[in-house]
Design a protein around this nucleic acid. Structure first.
Length: 559
RNA sequence: UCCCCUUUAGUGUAACGGUUAGCACAUAACUCUCUGAAAGUUACGGUCGUGGUUCGAAUCCACGAAGGGGAACCA
């Protein structure tokens, strides 16, 4: 369990850490995963979680979970709960180091007072619009606010009054005094505190002034003893500010911010706003819809934590914007499930087969292996009888030349059972095939050592013993590789109308009767499936996690 | 328009001045198979461009191009 054969590949961040360890800059590595509790975590967060917690694990360091909750209007406990659940589910543990940026509000306030005393911050009483107007543009420097030279005493008094709730939202802000002419807009006297008379999910009504991210983040990192503060590329231009606050407050043992490219996956969207729109506008059933790239969606879809961690390792970490092929994610689950999932017989689109020469009332209990990749998973019995169901598409009346399943006069092996031969095709008045009449060769029972072999082997269920089930097949949610990547088109235009297909008449082998939510199986020759949380004894519901790779249909389709 | 970042096969990533530029996924072919899966073998295919430095450049420099980010009292 401990030693991994497939070690996490190195990356530029690990190289920086190696170097910091070598030079003695640090002796212990400390990272953090700092989500804002304003939405559900998705696969992109999983990358960050695996990076931060993975580094802590590999360097015998620590990784904190910290809720970056400096904006009460957007945050909610619903999200802090789901985030904890998802991080744990992914297999990571923050021990007792779960923090909130809001835990630091008092300290943050004191540091702000210090900055005012040092002449590094001032209260600005301009309106938001005036602030915007004075900021200038990327090509033109900003202008000094008329409030920029208020005395420290006046600033202190005003800032305290802001805190005491004397002023309304938007009437004053605290600003860092930096450089209104900086080519980096973030350095043009950024807002440090704003007034928000809102109830905070953690601190309630204790505060009515809230620190901005740019200010709270470096200090929170510093207070937790973070050595490497990893974030995504869009914060690159914030780094000078991050460093500026640490410098202005003369803090020692400073954390270092390092940016990496966020994860993008083909055929999906990753922004919280877009995911929210998919939920709110009813394109999906909720945050945990199995088509969603959210952690809870992937979990419900049947993805395993192991497969997501392996995926994150394979994706790697770098600084260039990338669009990762979702096939890599799918490969990661297949790889994991192939080793762990029990094989089961399940017929999604049933076609009746009657074995005419099989005794009417005989039921044989045939033995089959649970997972050929893992002998220790053992064997089980499957009932076999005269009337069976096979997969509709495993029969072709006029077979394609390379088709080697069942067709008139041809033979096929029923997995773990017998070789059968199709003798007669029964059709209804409309000409639809409704039944196949076959004969079986009693000498070919599985495990009997029969020398006969046929090209095809198909799965089946016994009509009398099969259970009914609902099976949900999922396709990609979007028909475009990069639905959010078109300036001229809304991502909704690329929604795949056929991303969900519900099959109602599926028939599954009786061993599947007591599957519990989340149980994972391979339905032989069909794919990997898991029991949906909404599944009941009365109505078994399965989600297809991912189909098996299928070279035959692909080859045929190409012709 | 100004600032910052990035650029290696179809995709993702490695190589840190000296390797036939590696690995994974994808794709294709074959072998095997009581899953047309898995497994195994093979194939395919790459350093953004132009100059320069150097005995030697994916790697260093310059210029250019392309992509991304940046002007919330969001994170």
């Amino acid at each position: 369990m401990e030693e991994k054969t497939n070690a996490t590949p190195t990356n530029f961040i690990r190289e920086i850490i190696d170097d910091d360890l070598k030079t003695g800059k640090h002796t212990k590595i400390h990272t953090r995963f700092p989500p804002e509790p304003n939405g559900y975590l998705h696969i992109g967060h999983a990358k960050s979680i695996c990076l931060n917690f993975g580094i802590a694990r590999d360097y015998s360091g620590l990784c904190n979970l910290r809720f970056d909750d400096t904006n009460p209007e957007k945050e909610d406990v619903e999200y802090v709960d789901s985030i904890q659940e998802d991080v744990k589910w992914l297999g990571f543990d923050w021990d007792d180091r779960m923090y909130y940026a809001s835990d630091y509000f008092q300290k943050l306030y004191e540091f702000a007072v210090q900055m005012i005393k040092d002449g590094n911050a001032y209260v600005d009483s301009s309106t938001a619009q005036e602030l915007k107007d004075m900021r200038g543009t990327p090509t033109e420097p900003g202008m000094f606010s008329p409030f920029r030279n208020r005395s420290a005493d006046e600033n202190l008094r005003l800032f305290n009054e802001m805190k005491e709730g004397k002023y309304e939202d938007g009437t004053h802000v605290l600003r860092a005094k930096i450089d209104m002419a900086s080519p980096n807009m973030h350095m043009r006297d950024p807002v440090v505190y704003r007034i928000k008379k809102a109830t905070h999910h953690n601190t309630g009504d204790e505060w009515c002034i809230y620190p901005m991210y740019d200010y709270a983040h470096p200090i929170s990192d510093w207070m937790e003893g973070i050595t490497h503060s990893l974030c995504t590329l869009e914060f690159e231009v914030h780094r000078p500010l991050y460093d500026w606050f640490l410098e202005a407050l003369n803090l020692k043992n400073r954390p270092r911010q390092i940016e990496f490219a966020r994860l993008n996956l083909t055929y999906t969207v990753m922004s919280k706003r877009k995911l929210l729109e998919l939920v709110q506008e009813g394109y999906v059933s909720g945050w945990d819809d199995p088509r969603m790239p959210t952690i809870c969606g992937l979990r419900r879809r049947g993805y395993t934590p192991e497969s997501i961690r392996n995926f994150a390792d394979r994706v790697g970490v770098a600084k260039r914007d990338a669009l990762t092929d979702v096939a890599l994610l799918e490969h990661s689950v297949r790889e994991d499930l192939n080793k762990t999932a029990l094989r089961m017989m399940a017929v999604l689109k049933p076609l009746k087969v009657v074995i005419t020469n099989y005794p009417d009332d005989l039921v044989e209990e045939l033995e089959t292996i649970n997972n050929p990749e893992d002998e220790t998973k053992g064997y089980r019995k499957i009932p076999f009888s005269k009337e069976l169901f096979i997969e509709e598409e495993d029969f072709q009346e006029t077979p394609h030349k390379k088709f080697h399943r069942l067709s008139p006069g041809k033979e096929v092996r029923l997995k773990s059972a017998y070789i059968i031969k199709c003798e007669e095709v029964i059709k209804n008045a409309d000409g639809d095939i409704i039944e196949l009449r076959c004969t079986y060769d009693p000498e070919t029972k599985s495990g009997s050592g029969s020398p006969r072999s046929v090209k095809g082997t198909i799965h089946w269920v016994s009509a009398r013993h099969a259970l009914k089930a609902e099976v949900r097949l999922y396709e990609r949610l979007f028909i475009d590789e990069d639905p959010a990547g078109h300036d001229d088109k809304d991502f909704r235009e690329f929604i795949n109308p056929d991303s969900l297909q519900i099959l109602n008449g599926c028939l599954i082998e009786p061993a599947l009767a007591n599957g519990k939510a989340g149980d994972k199986y391979q339905f032989i020759r069909n794919g990997y499936f898991c029991v949906d949380p909404l599944s009941t004894e009365k109505l078994l519901v399965f989600n297809r996690t991912v189909a098996l790779k299928e070279s035959f249909t692909k080859a045929v389709e190409k012709k």
